[in-house]
Design a protein around this nucleic acid. Structure first.
Lengths: 325, 325
DNA sequence: TTGGTCGAAG
DNA sequence: CTTCGACCAA
């Protein structure tokens, strides 16, 4: 059976908002490692891969692997019945043909119980090669969304060019052409060395409270041993954000602090690729999930757009348009 | 002739928003006791009953009973011409074939005068028996609205079950089933009791200007003689809300304070009834009128959904679906 | 609080 | 396809 407890319904809502337009149905693959969903978008152009790691649930139990075929529209509908701060518990017996969800208000004076019919979905499990990318850009997810929206007003596709100096997004269309150049944030450096995107421990005076309110209490360490030989010590710890990321830190993680998000570029090789803005804009909808997004690119290889948030990772893959340049 | 003065156009706007979708035309029955409107909804399924008591007008005069047949759509249109804080005066001579309305800005620097054509409406006066209900639930009107909206996403109808422990709303549909259980708020008890909410006179420093615009200054006393023998001590200052409904006070009042609204259940007998969510959702639109709503139920008897606000009471009646359970 | 935008319904 | 209502931002 499965029983997974999530502290904040809001995360799930944001996730669904982020992907439901791309994917209508998919299997929630529940294992003892967590819950994953992988699916091609409806027009089989983009690939969505979501991972929620078991350790980041408030509690998690999954006795045996079970793929739960869900309609994401239905799931969205039901999640709308939860308030943002509700605690959400997913429940499914081993032979389930429906997925149970319980929404509990923080004060425990309201309990919503919902049951959603499941469907059988033939899932071609797509192996995703662990590519080494020539360029990795980390930037504010809000800025990414803004750029996609702006350029989408001009043309159908965007050319993304990453060089040492910065990254340029450009688009052409009927009404005109446009491009946005983001310079790498000063102090940010490629390679391990400086990488740690400005981890200035910039503390707001009022940040104290927030620390309290957030869920990640000091005991962030317990599941911390989950880190094997990771070179980067800055797990997206959430509010713990500011600290950490001392050294290594090639790509910045999703820190949830209030600091500005810089632009960092890790570049093995210059890259220039063109993508459909329609899809990128869709990916950008995940911005509320994480303050940072990373774009991973190699020439002639699908782009990887990745959002790291506390509970896991959301990845989008999209093949470049051939008509590059 | 009729001359009735209302302090805040906003109340009237909210009222119209609340019922205009249910009822298109109706008689405003003006008597020396106040103004009442009673009408079946357009599909003759639900009954709407509005009462505005004479004492709660800023001033009220009605020499003889007169039913003013109005089209609520027209009335809504005209009321939109008033700003929320405007003082509204209804005027009609005895033989009126039109209803005059005057909107005066609080600062009295703007006066709008409107006249709306009246219509003749044959009114079957429906006697509403003063039923004793087996269950009376008082809860936050916003929460009621939320629940109706949530469950409406799942199915057409909702089953409401009231028991000592709480009240459960449940619905079934294509995508799945759902239920919301509200527990009775601790400390809430049947019988009178009644939570007195504080009426903090909370003043903002920058409220100076607004004070001009607002009508109710601290000196709440002027028209206070409107209050007869009232047992309830907690008059939610603010708009001077508290008067009205004097005795019995089984159900909490509409206070305008900022406190949380609890759930209280007065139960003679367990009740389980099923209703059309379409109608309940419509009723719930009255939420802006009052922070609390009370649901009155007896088996096989129409549900009464009641909103008490400063100027009066708005009631909705709806027969249960036969297919209960 | 008001105006504008977006989505849903007829 | 048009209109209305609900939601969101200024």
């Amino acid at each position: 059976m499965l029983e997974a407890r999530v502290k904040q319904a809001s995360v799930l809502k944001k996730l669904l908002d982020a992907i439901k337009e791309l994917v209508t149905d998919g299997n929630l693959d529940c294992t003892d490692e967590g819950i994953a969903l992988q699916a091609m978008d409806n027009s089989h152009v983009a690939l969505v891969s979501l991972k929620l790691v078991a350790e980041q649930f408030e509690s998690y139990r999954c006795d045996r692997n079970m793929p739960l075929g869900v309609n994401l529209g239905s799931l969205t509908k039901i999640l709308k019945c939860a308030k943002d701060n509700d605690v959400v518990t997913f429940k499914a017996p081993d032979d389930a043909d429906s997925l149970g969800m319980v929404f509990e208000s923080p004060k425990e004076d309201r309990v919503g119980e919902y049951e959603m019919k499941l469907m059988d979905i033939d899932q071609e499990h797509l192996g995703i090669p662990d590519t080494q990318y020539d360029a990795t850009i980390t930037m504010s997810s809000a800025e990414f969304q803004r750029i996609c929206r702006d350029l989408a007003a001009l043309g159908e596709s965007v050319k993304i060019e990453a060089s040492k100096e910065g990254v340029r997004f450009s688009s052409e269309g009927e009404v005109g052409n446009g491009s946005v150049l983001l310079k790498q944030t000063a102090g940010t450096d490629r390679s391990s060395g400086g990488g740690s995107k400005k981890a200035q421990v910039k503390r707001d005076p009022d940040e104290e409270d927030e620390e309290e309110e957030e869920e990640e209490k000091p005991e962030v360490d317990e599941d911390e041993e989950g880190e094997e030989e990771q070179d980067d010590e800055d797990r997206p710890k959430k509010r713990k954000a500011a600290n950490g990321k001392a050294k290594g830190a090639k790509k910045a993680k999703n820190t949830d602090s209030t600091d500005e998000v810089g632009v960092s570029i890790i570049l093995e090789k210059q890259v220039s690729l063109t993508f459909s803005l329609k899809y990128l804009s869709n990916f950008a909808k995940s911005a509320p999930l994480a303050r940072e997004v990373s774009l991973h690119m190699s020439n002639d290889v699908p782009l990887l757009v990745q959002f790291d948030f506390e509970q896991g990772t959301l990845q989008f893959f999209l093949a470049p348009k051939i008509s590059d340049e």
